[in-house]
Design a protein around this nucleic acid. Structure first.
Lengths: 236, 236
DNA sequence: CGCGGGTTTGAGGCGAGTCAATGAGAGTGG
DNA sequence: CCACTCTCATTGACTCGCCTCAAACCCGCG
């Protein structure tokens, strides 16, 4: 299996080894991996990426499907002049990189040091070809991404800067708050590129919310929401 | 079947009958309907909507899946104060209203008088439960919508007004041009709400493209692209 | 023909972007 | 343990692209 990895991962495996990431031993799919597919016969492998390391590029063949174990990932598209739109952030437990077609439509990078679990796309395809429950699960996961994208189109097309930031805070609060505190893994530029704003506009909105007592800081990326209701009111 | 329709369509069927739409006789799925599912046993019905008539509302139970036969449909979300984001336009041949979950996440309205073919969602679910090819087709269709949404997020978050209009024109040219002429079914406000712009900004961009000789008008909604290459250059 | 909705065009305002400087931590090495 | 550095974040001043408001125009349709 270690041999299979070096074959199939080629450049990425080499790069990751240079970066000092470990390759976890092969093991059967555990319950925790049920999000991708809780079925015997699927091989899950762990893999690690360093901060800002590319996991896959836009239009690259979609060979694997990933689940974040720890860390955080951004999926994005670029325009030719470098303008970037982040489509989604992937946090621990999230599955990403799932494609129905042959290629990844967004690139993916580790926001911070990140460990993922992955399975070969062909394994999933094969399982889906014989098991309608697997097929249904794949559809449902893609539909979940579509739901998020539809909500995000409304944000990008029609919300004001303050509404976008309020939406973002409530989303992150829901997805990664522990004990009412959230530790954002991403920088202001990432947030801006997710919300269709500049990093300065994001910073100004956060400062304004801080001044109004709606949130508290413990360092720029440790945020406590002090009044979710008022935040909801700011979110259209 | 007519009885089934009045039962299952309730208010919509009544409204449509008042509007004078016809209810087509039940018939087996034809080859043309293969986009939804070319399988024996699925019942397709035709239904018509008048200009601006609602086909289904946001968060309404997703009982049917639709395919445009003729006309055009807009799918959109609204903010509480009326701001609208159109997620996509559905043109003849397009399938819309397909959901993995229980409810429609966007509302749908006929842009002009429109005829659709529809099948019960439960029929598709049932077919997908026994036939992995049907299941695969449903997944692929949802993945296609996701691809469009991802491209559109990039447009809404990062493109300029002129780039958005150029992208729109190329999309419509690809999807509905006949003999290099496209007859837009939607008004400037719809285009603006699709592109995250105001109708005035859309109009100004089109006027500018006209002045540059990149497109020609035969009435405000009949457009000929005279230089696709320059339009591509304007689209980031 | 003559409405009337839809479109175009103009003038001015404003929200977010740009450019620039300062500030605050986190990590590093002496 | 502190000084240094470097990245990231904040804040300010100014600009600008798109929005708003308003008026004129143009067809398409009855």
């Amino acid at each position: 299996m270690a041999q299979m990895l070096t074959q199939t991962f080629n450049t990425r495996a080499i790069k990751t080894q240079i970066n000092g990431s470990k390759i976890a031993p092969v093991h059967p799919v555990s319950d925790q991996f049920g999000e991708i597919a809780g079925y015997v016969g699927l091989i899950a492998t762990e893999f690690s990426y360093r901060k800002d390391e590319e996991i896959y590029g836009e239009d690259e063949p979609a060979e694997y499907v990933y689940q974040v174990v720890s860390g955080a990932v951004r999926s994005y598209k670029l325009l030719s002049d470098g303008r970037r739109q982040i489509g989604s952030f992937h946090l621990p437990g999230d599955v990403f990189g799932l494609e129905s077609g042959p290629a990844h439509r967004l690139a993916a990078e580790a926001i911070i040091d990140t460990t993922v679990r992955l399975v070969k796309r062909s394994s999933l395809e094969k399982a889906a070809g014989t098991d309608v429950l697997v097929a249904r699960k794949l559809w449902t996961m893609t539909a979940g991404e579509l739901r998020h994208a539809e909500d995000h189109m409304l944000l990008l097309g029609r919300k004001t800067a303050m509404e976008r930031v309020a939406t973002f805070l409530l989303e992150m609060d829901r997805r990664l708050a522990v004990a009412s505190m959230m530790a954002l893994p991403m920088c202001r530029r990432d947030i801006g590129d997710y919300l269709g704003l500049t990093l300065e506009t994001v910073s100004r909105a956060l400062s304004q919310l801080h001044a109004q007592g709606i949130l508290g800081f413990s360092g720029a990326r440790q945020i406590v929401l002090r009044n979710r209701q008022r935040l909801h009111n700011l979110d259209a």
